[in-house]
């Protein structure tokens, strides 16, 4: 089955991102297709490569990046929510005149249309949030 995931909360503050990762892994192991993982609200903070959690803690962003590499996942950070919260890729940093970007490998920034498209084209959309 074709599934999409919506993550509405940032990493660490709330369990939503962890649950979404465990769910995504389980779905992939069962042979389902993950069409897209869309990050909205504070969920966009999953996509910063500047997070440095303590060594004995999990690194949620790196977990997403590893999953994306292994399974060719489409990790999409909402541009409007990202701009509010300072998540930038190279293009956006240039466009907004910022001195650097922070998007992590495997993530891309795009519009809310990507969420609606996932809702239209997936068999199920599962929301993880607070």
């Amino acid at each position: 089955m074709k599934l999409s995931i919506l993550v509405n909360e940032g990493p660490y503050q709330h369990q939503a991102a962890d649950t979404a990762i465990q769910f995504t892994k389980a779905a992939l192991e069962k042979g389902h297709e993950i069409m897209r993982v869309f990050f909205y609200h504070d969920g966009v903070n999953n996509g910063t490569r500047f997070g440095v959690p303590p060594q004995d803690d999990r690194n949620i962003t790196e977990q997403w990046t590893a999953l994306a590499k292994e399974h060719d996942l489409d990790l999409v950070v909402c541009i409007a929510a990202a701009q509010r919260r300072g998540i930038l890729d190279e293009n956006e940093a240039k466009r907004q005149g910022k001195d650097g970007d922070n998007i992590a490998e495997g993530f891309r920034i795009s519009g809310l249309g990507q969420l609606i498209e996932a809702g239209i084209q997936s068999d199920r959309l599962v929301v993880f949030g607070d």
């Binding site: 769910f23 389980a26 779905a27 389902h32 199920r124 599962v126 929301v127």
Partner: peptide, 20 residues
């Protein structure tokens, strides 16, 4: 259920509502 069981439920029922 475990996470695999969570996935099964999502596919068995035809939509999901998260009461956030």
């Amino acid at each position: 259920v475990d996470y695999a069981g969570f996935v099964d439920l999502v596919t068995e029922y035809d939509k999901v509502q998260s009461w956030l």
